[in-house]
Nucleic acid binder design. Sequence first.
DNA 1: GTGGTCTAGACCACC
DNA 2: GTGGTCTAGACCACG
Lengths: 125, 125, 125, 125
Amino acid sequence: MNVIISNNSDKPLYLQIKEQIKEAILKGELQEGDLLPSVRAFANDIGVSVLTTRRVYDELEEEGFAVSRAGRGTFVAMGNPELLRDSKRRMVEEDLQKAIHSAKLFGIPKEELQQMMDILFEEEE
Amino acid sequence: MNVIISNNSDKPLYLQIKEQIKEAILKGELQEGDLLPSVRAFANDIGVSVLTTRRVYDELEEEGFAVSRAGRGTFVAMGNPELLRDSKRRMVEEDLQKAIHSAKLFGIPKEELQQMMDILFEEEE
Amino acid sequence: MNVIISNNSDKPLYLQIKEQIKEAILKGELQEGDLLPSVRAFANDIGVSVLTTRRVYDELEEEGFAVSRAGRGTFVAMGNPELLRDSKRRMVEEDLQKAIHSAKLFGIPKEELQQMMDILFEEEE
Amino acid sequence: MNVIISNNSDKPLYLQIKEQIKEAILKGELQEGDLLPSVRAFANDIGVSVLTTRRVYDELEEEGFAVSRAGRGTFVAMGNPELLRDSKRRMVEEDLQKAIHSAKLFGIPKEELQQMMDILFEEEE
DNA sequence: GTGGTCTAGACCACC
DNA sequence: GTGGTCTAGACCACG
């Protein structure tokens, strides 16, 4: 797994890391039951404090994406695939909703919005 | 102008205020050249510290949405209307791009995305 | 608010503290909207690390018992009173269920269990 | 004897195993003097490390539930039957006391507590 | 002043 | 080896 950290981002480190792991799970790169790197190995790997990776794993566990077992390691949680699908859709819908909200506010018509989506969809590499 | 402050929001006060002023400008409620309330009056009005409104006006000026004239007050900047239109589009495009990025990541096809937009567009009150 | 910490307990410090705050809220000693002590003042007060009180407040927030506002402080959450009542009952039911489970396992009849409850209820000071 | 291990439990493996053996003794499934499986056979049987079963037997011996005879094996301790009866009662009383303590704290009256016990007693399958 | 994040150590229980 | 807790510092943004 590749995690990229930006010190210039306004997002805290632990959030950047957490989101990348969640994305990897949602994309299917990390499968249910997979062993995640140990907090120490991971911290060393990406150059952050152990406490920071601990926090990432703690929150992933709270959110149901991972399970930690003392003395064994941290694993990708066994989750109902439906939940994953929903989780993906919800992420997309959130951003979409924001865009639509602003568009309505500024009087951008639905047709123009659809056109923008078409263009942006092709542009994205 | 009505500014609504939520103490339950995760956004800092100064940002909530700034964004609502910017929205009012982009929506056309505040016209170019309009006089904004004084920092003191405004602070008193919405029940926040003078320092907070001071910061709002400072940042609005930095971003080119307002100009302060010593002894006269703070005014909505005289901006090229083109710039405003672009600014609106850019805001919408940013969120749209995020949604498209996630959708591609999770394998949600363009058709499904368009369908989601249709539904969300109608739902928005 | 009085918090008592035992270093001999098998429970981690942060849990001991968190549970006592939750109890104070459930008992009504702490009312909705009340300001909790700052993490630093609290840590100093009860003689633990700042990080430990931070963690307590973080988790109380996650569980919906408190809300933190940067620059202002941490407050007892405005919660629907129904939820509090349910929370109380659930705590009691959990322990009761354990007792009943063991009793059935060991063949202790319902009558004896009720008798035990009578006696223990009077004994409790 | 059937021992079921859950990887999803928050309890450590050795505790899960130990508690199930103690329950079997208290329930009478394991009689005084019965030979327990060897640490190696047992570890192999339930799929855990030998160290883990070793620890289980050590602690059972410390607590007086088992005795090890070098070269012979580990046996369920010859215990005074009174002690066993007391042990059962104590386990039940402990949980009952916690429930009563919380109930008093939150102002739940004795009648409501008894009602809860009635309901939970019937519900338990 | 407040909370939010982060570092660099440490000790413990579990496997 | 692993995760779980804790300490004693630090810097930043917010009000």
